[in-house]
Design a protein around this nucleic acid. Structure first.
Length: 254
DNA sequence: ATGGCTTCATAGTGAAGA
């Protein structure tokens, strides 16, 4: 079974890339972030023709998450139950005994910003909910754009990024607090190429110079981690015309 | 160099991303 996550930075713009990637990679589940589409405008028919069911929770202009899947989802849940939020950042669905949580963690903007406080509060609420969800669903996977580079190895220039948003101690602690609930960072279960990143700024030719961060993650509950055979970042869509600034990340289970 | 691109909502620029 193959599960993947991709921040597409507008599904309107990126739909051709998504369709082509689905055809090439044939994932069983693909979680999307930053769809930037209201649900009424979600291209469900096109994706259904491509062989995928869709669950979506979106809004105009910002945020928006979706889960595409070969099998139809059950138990669809939008948002964090105890954290009322206009921003569409979480979508959860069940496939047999597998519970899938698609997240778009707030960016935070800068550590001085109110948005940084919102990010930390959001992460805390998310952890509280995941603690309970893990009791109900031992086979739990959390995939998405987490907007945190967990360690210096996930940063092209750790000195320049030290203490900055995406790399600050509080964000990294929040990430490891999630793992401490009983998850593994699937990417680090395996030997990986050095300088592996999942996001590169559009500016400064950052992709060509591999000036990136690894901020898109697949967290597997311990019950799933033991069956994980691989985790990889696919850089190829980042080379296309009008790419997303993020690359898809995939795991193979079972 | 506090910018550099890209997207979206707009109809000029501005916000936001990371």
């Amino acid at each position: 079974m193959k599960l993947a996550t991709w921040n597409v930075n507008s599904l309107n713009v990126r739909l051709p890339h998504v369709l082509s990637w689905l055809q090439q990679q044939q994932p069983d589940v693909l979680c999307l972030q930053e769809t930037k589409l209201e649900d009424a405008r979600f291209p469900a028919d096109t994706l259904r023709e491509a062989g995928y069911f869709c669950a979506a929770s979106g809004q105009k202009t910002y945020n928006g998450v979706a889960i595409l899947s070969r099998c139809e989802a059950t138990g669809i849940l939008k948002g964090l139950p105890d954290f009322p939020d206009e921003q569409r950042r979480v979508l959860t669905a069940t496939f047999a005994d597998l519970r899938v949580v698609c997240v778009y963690v707030p960016n935070g903007q800068s550590i001085e910003s109110e948005k940084y406080q919102y990010k930390l509060a959001w992460l805390s609420a998310c952890a509280d909910w995941l603690r309970e969800e893990l009791k109900r669903y031992p086979k739990l996977v959390v995939l998405g754009d987490m907007n945190i580079a967990p360690a210096d190895a996930d940063v092209h220039d750790p000195k320049a990024w030290e203490g900055q948003v995406l790399c600050s101690d509080k964000e990294r602690k929040a990430f490891f607090d999630l793992l401490a609930l009983g998850f593994k960072d699937s990417f680090r279960l395996f030997e990986q190429p050095p300088e592996s990143f999942s996001w590169w700024d559009y500016r400064m030719m950052a992709f060509r110079r591999n000036m990136g961060l690894r901020i898109d993650h697949i967290l597997l509950s311990d019950a799933l981690a033991s069956s994980c055979r691989s985790c990889s970042i696919d850089r190829t869509p980042r080379k296309l015309e009008r790419p997303s600034d993020h690359a898809p990340v995939s795991v193979e289970l079972g």
